[in-house]
Protein backbone atom coordinates (compact mmCIF):
# COMPACT_ATOMS: atom_id res chain seq x y z
CA UNK A 1 0.00 0.00 0.00
CA UNK A 2 2.83 2.36 -0.72
CA UNK A 3 1.42 4.18 -3.69
CA UNK A 4 3.46 6.92 -5.22
CA UNK A 5 1.99 9.49 -7.53
CA UNK A 6 3.12 8.01 -10.80
CA UNK A 7 0.11 7.20 -12.97
CA UNK A 8 0.34 3.63 -14.23
CA UNK A 9 -3.03 3.46 -15.92
CA UNK A 10 -5.02 6.37 -17.28
CA UNK A 11 -8.59 5.70 -18.36
CA UNK A 12 -10.17 8.53 -20.28
CA UNK A 13 -13.86 8.64 -21.16
CA UNK A 14 -14.07 4.90 -21.68
CA UNK A 15 -17.28 3.76 -23.37
CA UNK A 16 -18.40 0.18 -23.92
CA UNK A 17 -21.76 -0.41 -25.57
CA UNK A 18 -23.12 -3.84 -26.47
CA UNK A 19 -25.47 -3.77 -29.46
CA UNK A 20 -28.94 -5.33 -29.06
CA UNK A 21 -30.23 -7.15 -32.14
CA UNK A 22 -33.86 -8.10 -32.81
CA UNK A 23 -35.98 -9.81 -35.41
CA UNK A 24 -35.29 -12.18 -38.30
CA UNK A 25 -32.82 -9.81 -39.91
CA UNK A 26 -31.04 -9.21 -36.60
CA UNK A 27 -31.23 -5.46 -36.95
CA UNK A 28 -29.60 -3.43 -34.24
CA UNK A 29 -32.41 -1.88 -32.20
CA UNK A 30 -30.40 -0.38 -29.39
CA UNK A 31 -27.44 -0.88 -27.11
CA UNK A 32 -26.66 -1.88 -23.56
CA UNK A 33 -24.67 1.08 -22.32
CA UNK A 34 -22.63 -1.01 -19.90
CA UNK A 35 -19.86 1.56 -19.50
CA UNK A 36 -20.71 5.07 -20.56
CA UNK A 37 -17.88 7.53 -20.17
CA UNK A 38 -15.63 6.51 -17.32
CA UNK A 39 -12.40 8.30 -16.41
CA UNK A 40 -9.89 7.56 -13.67
CA UNK A 41 -6.22 7.01 -12.97
CA UNK A 42 -4.56 4.12 -11.20
CA UNK A 43 -1.27 4.98 -9.54
CA UNK A 44 1.69 2.64 -9.43
CA UNK A 45 1.63 0.44 -6.34
CA UNK A 46 -1.86 1.36 -5.17
CA UNK A 47 -5.12 -0.54 -4.92
CA UNK A 48 -8.04 1.22 -6.50
CA UNK A 49 -11.36 -0.27 -5.37
CA UNK A 50 -14.23 -0.25 -7.87
CA UNK A 51 -17.61 -0.84 -6.24
CA UNK A 52 -21.23 -0.79 -7.31
CA UNK A 53 -24.28 -2.98 -7.56
CA UNK A 54 -24.71 -5.91 -9.90
CA UNK A 55 -24.79 -4.91 -13.56
CA UNK A 56 -23.37 -1.41 -13.08
CA UNK A 57 -20.47 -2.17 -15.44
CA UNK A 58 -17.55 -3.08 -13.18
CA UNK A 59 -16.46 -6.24 -15.00
CA UNK A 60 -17.01 -4.62 -18.37
CA UNK A 61 -14.73 -1.76 -17.33
CA UNK A 62 -12.05 -4.28 -16.33
CA UNK A 63 -12.37 -6.23 -19.55
CA UNK A 64 -12.34 -3.12 -21.70
CA UNK A 65 -9.16 -1.95 -19.97
CA UNK A 66 -7.43 -5.22 -20.82
CA UNK A 67 -8.82 -5.00 -24.37
CA UNK A 68 -10.71 -8.27 -23.92
CA UNK A 69 -13.49 -6.15 -25.37
CA UNK A 70 -12.82 -3.54 -28.04
CA UNK A 71 -13.98 -0.31 -26.41
CA UNK A 72 -16.66 1.67 -28.24
CA UNK A 73 -14.78 4.88 -27.48
CA UNK A 74 -12.23 6.36 -25.14
CA UNK A 75 -8.60 5.89 -24.24
CA UNK A 76 -6.81 3.41 -22.00
CA UNK A 77 -3.21 4.45 -21.46
CA UNK A 78 -0.86 2.02 -19.75
CA UNK A 79 2.51 3.57 -18.95
CA UNK A 80 1.64 6.20 -21.53
CA UNK A 81 0.74 3.80 -24.37
CA UNK A 82 -2.85 3.88 -25.63
CA UNK A 83 -3.95 0.24 -25.69
CA UNK A 84 -7.10 0.91 -27.73
CA UNK A 85 -5.14 1.70 -30.87
CA UNK A 86 -2.36 -0.80 -30.28
CA UNK A 87 -1.73 -3.47 -32.96
CA UNK A 88 -1.99 -7.18 -32.14
CA UNK A 89 1.62 -8.11 -31.51
CA UNK A 90 2.55 -5.13 -29.31
CA UNK A 91 -0.72 -5.68 -27.44
CA UNK A 92 0.22 -9.32 -26.86
CA UNK A 93 3.51 -8.16 -25.37
CA UNK A 94 1.68 -5.60 -23.28
CA UNK A 95 -0.70 -8.22 -21.94
CA UNK A 96 2.10 -9.90 -20.02
CA UNK A 97 2.19 -6.94 -17.71
CA UNK A 98 -1.54 -6.97 -17.05
CA UNK A 99 -3.50 -9.86 -15.67
CA UNK A 100 -6.96 -10.61 -14.39
CA UNK A 101 -8.26 -12.79 -11.56
CA UNK A 102 -11.84 -13.84 -12.06
CA UNK A 103 -14.89 -13.97 -9.85
CA UNK A 104 -15.81 -17.58 -10.18
CA UNK A 105 -13.06 -19.98 -9.12
CA UNK A 106 -15.21 -22.85 -10.39
CA UNK A 107 -15.82 -21.67 -13.93
CA UNK A 108 -12.57 -19.86 -14.68
CA UNK A 109 -10.22 -22.86 -14.66
CA UNK A 110 -10.24 -25.45 -17.45
CA UNK A 111 -11.27 -28.69 -15.71
CA UNK A 112 -9.23 -30.87 -18.09
CA UNK A 113 -5.91 -29.24 -17.28
CA UNK A 114 -3.78 -30.09 -14.27
CA UNK A 115 -2.83 -27.37 -11.85
CA UNK A 116 0.70 -27.43 -13.22
CA UNK A 117 -0.54 -26.98 -16.80
CA UNK A 118 -2.90 -24.20 -15.73
CA UNK A 119 -0.24 -22.24 -13.92
CA UNK A 120 2.38 -22.95 -16.59
CA UNK A 121 0.15 -22.14 -19.57
CA UNK A 122 0.86 -18.38 -19.66
CA UNK A 123 4.58 -19.19 -19.73
CA UNK A 124 4.12 -21.53 -22.72
CA UNK A 125 1.88 -19.10 -24.59
CA UNK A 126 4.45 -16.37 -24.22
CA UNK A 127 7.22 -18.94 -24.69
CA UNK A 128 9.37 -17.31 -22.08
CA UNK A 129 11.05 -20.44 -20.80
CA UNK A 130 11.80 -24.07 -21.55
CA UNK A 131 10.08 -27.16 -20.16
CA UNK A 132 12.31 -27.72 -17.19
CA UNK A 133 12.31 -24.08 -16.21
CA UNK A 134 8.54 -24.01 -16.46
CA UNK A 135 8.27 -26.83 -13.95
CA UNK A 136 10.54 -24.94 -11.59
CA UNK A 137 8.62 -21.73 -12.01
CA UNK A 138 5.29 -23.51 -11.42
CA UNK A 139 6.66 -24.94 -8.21
CA UNK A 140 7.79 -21.49 -7.15
CA UNK A 141 4.42 -19.96 -8.00
CA UNK A 142 2.48 -22.59 -6.08
CA UNK A 143 4.65 -21.95 -3.05
CA UNK A 144 4.06 -18.23 -3.41
CA UNK A 145 0.29 -18.71 -3.13
CA UNK A 146 0.80 -21.20 -0.29
CA UNK A 147 -0.22 -24.32 -2.14
CA UNK A 148 1.73 -27.54 -1.88
CA UNK A 149 3.85 -27.85 -5.08
CA UNK A 150 2.96 -31.56 -5.12
CA UNK A 151 -0.55 -30.45 -6.14
CA UNK A 152 0.77 -29.64 -9.64
CA UNK A 153 -0.40 -32.99 -10.99
CA UNK A 154 -3.96 -32.69 -9.67
CA UNK A 155 -7.08 -31.32 -11.35
CA UNK A 156 -9.09 -28.25 -10.27
CA UNK A 157 -12.11 -30.25 -9.11
CA UNK A 158 -9.98 -31.74 -6.35
CA UNK A 159 -9.66 -28.34 -4.71
CA UNK A 160 -11.84 -26.12 -2.56
CA UNK A 161 -13.00 -22.69 -3.73
CA UNK A 162 -10.27 -20.88 -1.82
CA UNK A 163 -7.58 -23.18 -3.19
CA UNK A 164 -8.89 -22.74 -6.73
CA UNK A 165 -8.75 -19.00 -6.29
CA UNK A 166 -5.09 -19.40 -5.25
CA UNK A 167 -4.49 -21.36 -8.46
CA UNK A 168 -6.01 -18.42 -10.34
CA UNK A 169 -3.68 -16.05 -8.50
CA UNK A 170 -0.63 -18.20 -9.27
CA UNK A 171 -1.62 -18.23 -12.94
CA UNK A 172 -2.02 -14.46 -12.96
CA UNK A 173 1.42 -14.04 -11.39
CA UNK A 174 3.21 -16.37 -13.82
CA UNK A 175 4.48 -13.65 -16.15
CA UNK A 176 5.52 -11.20 -13.40
CA UNK A 177 2.82 -8.65 -14.17
CA UNK A 178 2.77 -5.14 -12.70
CA UNK A 179 -0.95 -4.68 -12.79
CA UNK A 180 -3.71 -7.11 -11.81
CA UNK A 181 -7.43 -6.62 -12.14
CA UNK A 182 -9.09 -8.63 -9.38
CA UNK A 183 -12.71 -9.09 -10.46
CA UNK A 184 -14.60 -10.06 -7.30
CA UNK A 185 -11.91 -12.56 -6.37
CA UNK A 186 -13.53 -13.50 -3.09
CA UNK A 187 -17.30 -13.14 -3.48
CA UNK A 188 -17.82 -16.84 -4.14
CA UNK A 189 -15.83 -17.88 -1.07
CA UNK A 190 -16.78 -18.61 2.51
CA UNK A 191 -16.15 -15.89 5.06
CA UNK A 192 -13.24 -17.62 6.78
CA UNK A 193 -11.62 -18.33 3.40
CA UNK A 194 -12.10 -14.76 2.10
CA UNK A 195 -9.67 -13.45 4.68
CA UNK A 196 -7.06 -16.02 3.61
CA UNK A 197 -7.22 -14.90 -0.02
CA UNK A 198 -7.27 -11.17 0.80
CA UNK A 199 -4.27 -11.51 3.09
CA UNK A 200 -2.46 -13.37 0.33
CA UNK A 201 -3.23 -10.64 -2.22
CA UNK A 202 -1.95 -8.00 0.19
CA UNK A 203 1.26 -9.90 0.90
CA UNK A 204 1.95 -10.40 -2.81
CA UNK A 205 1.32 -6.72 -3.45
CA UNK A 206 3.95 -5.76 -0.88
CA UNK A 207 6.41 -8.33 -2.07
CA UNK A 208 6.21 -7.47 -5.78
CA UNK A 209 4.98 -3.88 -5.72
CA UNK A 210 1.84 -4.88 -7.61
CA UNK A 211 -0.88 -2.45 -8.61
CA UNK A 212 -4.47 -3.65 -8.21
CA UNK A 213 -7.82 -2.67 -9.58
CA UNK A 214 -10.02 -4.45 -7.04
CA UNK A 215 -13.59 -4.94 -8.23
CA UNK A 216 -16.16 -5.86 -5.60
CA UNK A 217 -19.57 -5.21 -4.24
CA UNK A 218 -18.57 -5.81 -0.62
CA UNK A 219 -17.95 -2.28 0.64
CA UNK A 220 -16.43 -3.50 3.89
CA UNK A 221 -13.76 -5.51 2.12
CA UNK A 222 -13.10 -2.69 -0.33
CA UNK A 223 -12.53 -0.36 2.59
CA UNK A 224 -10.06 -2.81 4.00
CA UNK A 225 -8.02 -3.36 0.88
CA UNK A 226 -8.13 -0.11 -1.12
CA UNK A 227 -6.12 3.08 -1.07
CA UNK A 228 -8.72 4.90 -3.15
CA UNK A 229 -12.25 3.91 -4.08
CA UNK A 230 -14.49 4.60 -7.10
CA UNK A 231 -18.26 4.10 -6.86
CA UNK A 232 -20.07 3.13 -10.06
CA UNK A 233 -23.76 3.25 -10.92
CA UNK A 234 -25.31 2.36 -14.28
CA UNK A 235 -22.14 2.65 -16.31
CA UNK A 236 -20.89 5.89 -14.76
CA UNK A 237 -18.54 6.70 -11.89
CA UNK A 238 -20.47 8.69 -9.31
CA UNK A 239 -17.73 9.36 -6.78
CA UNK A 240 -14.02 8.73 -6.37
CA UNK A 241 -11.81 9.60 -3.40
CA UNK A 242 -9.16 8.40 -1.00
CA UNK A 243 -10.46 5.55 1.12
CA UNK A 244 -10.87 7.39 4.43
CA UNK A 245 -12.31 10.45 2.73
CA UNK A 246 -14.88 8.41 0.82
CA UNK A 247 -16.07 6.37 3.78
CA UNK A 248 -16.03 9.17 6.33
CA UNK A 249 -17.28 11.92 4.13
CA UNK A 250 -19.27 10.57 1.17
CA UNK A 251 -20.63 13.45 -0.89
CA UNK A 252 -22.79 11.64 -3.44
CA UNK A 253 -26.32 10.59 -2.38
CA UNK A 254 -25.78 7.17 -3.92
CA UNK A 255 -22.56 6.55 -2.00
CA UNK A 256 -24.28 7.72 1.17
CA UNK A 257 -27.17 5.28 0.66
CA UNK A 258 -24.88 2.44 -0.33
CA UNK A 259 -22.70 2.84 2.75
CA UNK A 260 -25.67 3.09 5.06
CA UNK A 261 -27.11 -0.14 3.66
CA UNK A 262 -24.10 -2.27 4.57
CA UNK A 263 -24.82 -4.21 7.76
CA UNK A 264 -22.24 -3.97 10.55
CA UNK A 265 -21.42 -7.13 12.50
CA UNK A 266 -22.03 -5.36 15.79
CA UNK A 267 -25.62 -5.01 17.08
CA UNK A 268 -24.88 -1.91 19.15
CA UNK A 269 -23.15 0.04 16.37
CA UNK A 270 -25.73 -1.20 13.86
CA UNK A 271 -28.67 0.08 15.91
CA UNK A 272 -27.17 3.55 16.17
CA UNK A 273 -26.79 4.07 12.44
CA UNK A 274 -29.01 6.18 10.27
CA UNK A 275 -30.25 4.21 7.29
CA UNK A 276 -31.11 5.60 3.89
CA UNK A 277 -33.31 2.97 2.25
CA UNK A 278 -33.39 3.49 -1.51
CA UNK A 279 -36.69 2.87 -3.26
CA UNK A 280 -37.01 0.69 -6.33
CA UNK A 281 -34.46 -1.06 -8.51
CA UNK A 282 -31.57 -0.07 -10.71
CA UNK A 283 -32.96 0.89 -14.18
CA UNK A 284 -31.88 -1.01 -17.29
CA UNK A 285 -28.57 0.07 -18.85
CA UNK A 286 -30.24 -0.31 -22.25
CA UNK A 287 -32.47 2.62 -21.39
CA UNK A 288 -30.86 4.69 -18.65
CA UNK A 289 -32.65 7.75 -17.21
CA UNK A 290 -31.92 11.13 -18.80
CA UNK A 291 -29.69 13.55 -16.95
CA UNK A 292 -28.34 12.03 -13.78
CA UNK A 293 -28.65 8.24 -13.91
CA UNK A 294 -29.34 8.01 -10.25
CA UNK A 295 -32.28 10.43 -10.30
CA UNK A 296 -35.05 7.77 -10.31
CA UNK A 297 -33.87 6.57 -6.89
CA UNK A 298 -32.26 9.71 -5.54
CA UNK A 299 -33.93 11.00 -2.37
CA UNK A 300 -32.96 14.63 -3.08
CA UNK A 301 -33.38 14.90 -6.87
CA UNK A 302 -34.48 18.26 -8.34
CA UNK A 303 -35.87 18.99 -11.87
CA UNK A 304 -32.38 19.91 -13.14
CA UNK A 305 -31.30 16.32 -12.50
CA UNK A 306 -33.53 15.06 -15.33
CA UNK A 307 -32.25 17.68 -17.74
CA UNK A 308 -28.52 17.50 -17.60
CA UNK A 309 -25.94 14.95 -16.64
CA UNK A 310 -23.85 16.20 -13.73
CA UNK A 311 -20.19 16.73 -14.44
CA UNK A 312 -17.59 14.62 -12.61
CA UNK A 313 -16.12 17.49 -10.56
CA UNK A 314 -13.16 17.62 -8.21
CA UNK A 315 -14.87 19.15 -5.18
CA UNK A 316 -11.88 18.75 -2.89
CA UNK A 317 -8.36 17.73 -3.75
CA UNK A 318 -8.59 14.18 -5.09
CA UNK A 319 -12.31 13.87 -4.28
CA UNK A 320 -14.47 13.69 -7.42
CA UNK A 321 -18.28 13.72 -7.42
CA UNK A 322 -20.91 13.60 -10.18
CA UNK A 323 -23.89 15.34 -8.60
CA UNK A 324 -25.46 18.75 -9.25
CA UNK A 325 -26.14 19.33 -5.58
CA UNK A 326 -22.99 18.05 -3.91
CA UNK A 327 -20.77 20.70 -2.35
Amino acid sequence: MTANNEVLLHVDNLVMHFPIYRGVFQRQVGAVRAVDGVSFDVKRGETLGLVGESGCGKSTTGRAILQLYKPTAGKVEYEGTNLVTLKREPMRQMRRKMQMIFQDPYASLNPRMTVGQLVGEPLMVHSVTTGEEIDKRVEQLLELVKLNPAFATRYPHEFSGGQRQRIGVARALALNPNFIICDEPISALDVSIQAQVVNLLEELQQQFGLTYLFIAHDLSMVRHISDRVAVMYLGVIMELAEREELYNNPLHPYTQALLSAVPIPDPVADAQRKRVILEGDVPSPANPPSGCRFRTRCPIAVPLCAESQPEFRELRPGHFVACHLAK
Partner: peptide, 8 residues
Protein backbone atom coordinates in the same frame (compact mmCIF):
# COMPACT_ATOMS: atom_id res chain seq x y z
CA UNK B 1 -12.07 -11.27 13.35
CA UNK B 2 -12.00 -12.11 9.67
CA UNK B 3 -14.64 -9.50 8.83
CA UNK B 4 -13.54 -6.02 7.84
CA UNK B 5 -16.03 -3.34 8.86
CA UNK B 6 -17.53 -0.62 6.75
CA UNK B 7 -17.55 1.76 9.73
CA UNK B 8 -13.80 1.70 9.68
Amino acid sequence: GSLPRVDG
